[in-house]
Design a protein around this nucleic acid. Structure first.
Lengths: 143, 143
DNA sequence: TTTAAAATCATACTTTCGGGTGAAGTGGGG
DNA sequence: CCCCACTTCACCCGAAAGTATGATTTTAAA
């Protein structure tokens, strides 16, 4: 950032020096003032674009890296009639946990998780947990 | 895009007219030429930055929308010693197919798929297919 | 307070997954 | 030609996942 500003300042200084030199020695008397102004305008427009790109490039990278903060699709959740508990189970499924592990994490029995997952599969219209995870991500129900 | 160019041209034209008017009437004799050039440079730098931002803004949106065209991480694939067939199986796994379905798609027996998947799990250091899919995505082995 | 939805658990049964082992055919490189 | 990696397949077994059905308890809403 500091480097960019320094480079920019340097570019302006050099250009001004060059232009001033040219101005007094050769061109001012031959070329019309409009062309002279136009040239300066064009050159500094280019410098501006270049500088502007430099400045915004950082932001672009940030957008790419911090992309998709994930917002849950509540509408879809309600539309499919998926309950809180079922959603929790889906999240843990997506993290690759087995039904037994999910049961332990939620302090309920394995059978309960089986029930929840079975209901989940019906609501998501899938047959397997891998498909449920896929579908869940598609519908933005899980990150 | 066309609108941006038009606006930009208009801005340049107006600025040149304004500057020319000022130049002949009031300022040229009072202010030094350096300040005059500097002003033009600054103004058009600003215009350049503004224009540059306008031009790159589109690209930013494109990056966000068309993000991640997926390029396979061949290095990782070789590093882990995952074969072509195993990779195929992993892809179909990620699409939520059962071993039987994968076997049918690849015209091989269920046992073969079991072998491939078992080898995959070892190479990916996971215990379940859901985790294999997760890991595969992390390592950019699958979209 | 009644009622419905959600959450809990169970039992029984089927299917799928995954581990372990062994083996046979194929194709390329030393 | 032989070795090695890859691919293919088989059998067995246990664990995990999924299906079906029914029942009880909580909870939130009407």
């Amino acid at each position: 950032m500091r480097k960019t500003i320094l480079l920019y300042g340097l570019a302006i200084a050099i250009l001004i020096i060059v232009l001033k030199t040219i101005e007094y020695r050769y061109l001012l008397r031959d070329l019309s003032v409009e062309i002279y102004i136009g040239s300066i305008a064009l050159i500094f427009t280019a410098v501006g674009i270049w500088g502007g790109m430099r400045l915004t490039q950082r932001k672009k990278i940030i957008i790419k890296e911090a992309a998709a903060p994930f917002v849950l699709n509540q509408q879809e959740l309600e539309r499919l009639g998926i309950s809180k508990r079922e959603h929790e189970v889906l999240e843990l499924m997506a993290q690759g946990f087995s039904n037994q592990e999910i049961a332990d994490k939620l302090f309920v029995s394995l059978n309960t998780i089986k029930t929840h997952s079975a209901n989940l599969f019906v609501k998501l219209e899938v047959k397997r947990r891998t498909q449920a995870v896929q579908r869940g991500k598609e519908l933005h129900l899980i990150p």
